[in-house]
Computed example of a mutant assay.
Amino acid sequence: MNTTKRPTIATVAEHAGLSVATVDRVLNARAPVNPATAEKVFQAAEAVGYFAARLIGQRIRECRPSYRFGILLLGTAQAFYGNVAAAISEAAQRQAGVNLNLQFEYVIDRTPSAIIAQIEQLAVQCDGLAVVSFAHPLIQASIAQIKAAGVPVIALLSDIYEAADEPYVGQDNHEVGRTMGWLMAHTCGARKGSVGVLLGGHRFLGHQARVEGLRSYLAERAPGLRPLEAVINLDNNDITEEATLDLLARHDDLRGLCVVGGGGDGIISALSQLPKQPSLCCILQESTELSRKALAQGLISLVIDSQP
């Protein structure tokens, strides 16, 4: 004979440290309850095995405000942006007070008109946007109109306006660049030589800030290491591979390579096909399966993990 007592509302209330009346209000939606209190009741109901725990969870979800957020990421550097998307999704699931639905879109066509079309489409469908984009007058004008219409827009990973007056989520990119300079100066094993720099594009203000930070540190602390004119790689691995081989062919004194955005796996592809490994300090921005393997093999020197 099973003598285990079935959990009741009183059991839930005792476990939650609340009154039976409060638990009853949550269960039967008799009156408004503070979201934190309702969540406490739900956690207690699950913990004691109360039969209506699922119903309580449903009641809580029904009472929460719901929002749809549009997230526009780049279609290149798929491993990195996959990690970014996963991190945003996990953060959304942790928000107990609201129901958040995320709509991810990816920029494949980098022409301003195509990006504007994607941003405007998301603005029609969503309550707020987070956008990875380069700076361009037409894109800025479109975002200004969307914000004026009441849809918040956050710049993600790279500022979109020169004045950086819009909300921004990401790293201090100038400091990332200076950190790369410090790492280059302390790990390349040479006091003189040239340093190759690859970036997604000059209009990406975050990339530009990293290049400026790198240059400023080397000029101040390691003037013998001379950054070359930055090469645009569109965050593309194939372009980065070709650019790496070209830089090695044209600069006998090449001592370092820095990728300030995506496409770093292209350096690994280039170096892995050389019969003899050059003495290079290579700094990448993406922690991927390939880059971690390359670190273990000694093909590259450092990976800065952005920890999305």
Score class of each variant (00 low, 15 high):
300 I>R: 07
285 Q>N: 07
87 A>C: 04
210 R>C: 11
70 G>I: 07
295 L>H: 06
256 G>L: 09
78 Q>P: 10
38 A>H: 11
136 H>T: 01
81 Y>M: 05
97 G>S: 12
88 I>N: 03
19 S>Q: 03
231 V>I: 13
194 S>C: 04
186 H>R: 11
157 L>R: 11
234 L>R: 06
217 Y>D: 02
167 P>H: 11
244 T>L: 06
24 D>V: 02
273 Q>Y: 03
120 E>V: 00
240 T>D: 07
86 A>S: 10
222 A>R: 14
97 G>C: 04
255 R>C: 13
26 V>Y: 09
253 D>G: 05
236 N>V: 03
14 E>W: 06
302 L>F: 12
259 V>A: 03
56 I>V: 13
306 S>R: 12
161 Y>V: 03
127 D>A: 09
289 E>D: 06
295 L>S: 05
63 C>F: 08
265 D>E: 15
144 A>E: 15
185 A>Q: 11
289 E>N: 09
99 N>C: 11
188 C>I: 08
160 I>D: 05
257 L>T: 01
58 Q>C: 00
233 N>A: 04
31 A>R: 15
196 G>I: 01
86 A>D: 10
9 I>A: 01
230 A>C: 14
8 T>P: 11
88 I>F: 15
301 S>G: 05
146 I>K: 10
146 I>D: 03
88 I>M: 11
174 H>P: 00
100 L>W: 09
238 D>F: 13
205 L>D: 08
161 Y>H: 02
181 G>P: 15
43 Q>A: 13
87 A>G: 01
293 K>Y: 09
36 A>P: 07
269 S>V: 04
98 V>P: 05
81 Y>G: 00
49 G>H: 14
196 G>P: 05
263 G>C: 09
137 P>I: 07
206 G>D: 07
65 P>W: 14
303 V>N: 12
31 A>S: 14
22 T>A: 06
94 R>N: 08
240 T>W: 13
134 F>I: 01
162 E>S: 03
180 M>H: 09
90 E>I: 02
305 D>T: 04
135 A>T: 14
58 Q>R: 14
30 R>Y: 09
286 E>K: 04
176 V>T: 02
290 L>F: 02
142 S>N: 02
42 F>W: 13
229 E>L: 08
206 G>N: 02
6 R>Y: 01
72 L>T: 02
122 L>F: 07
288 T>C: 08
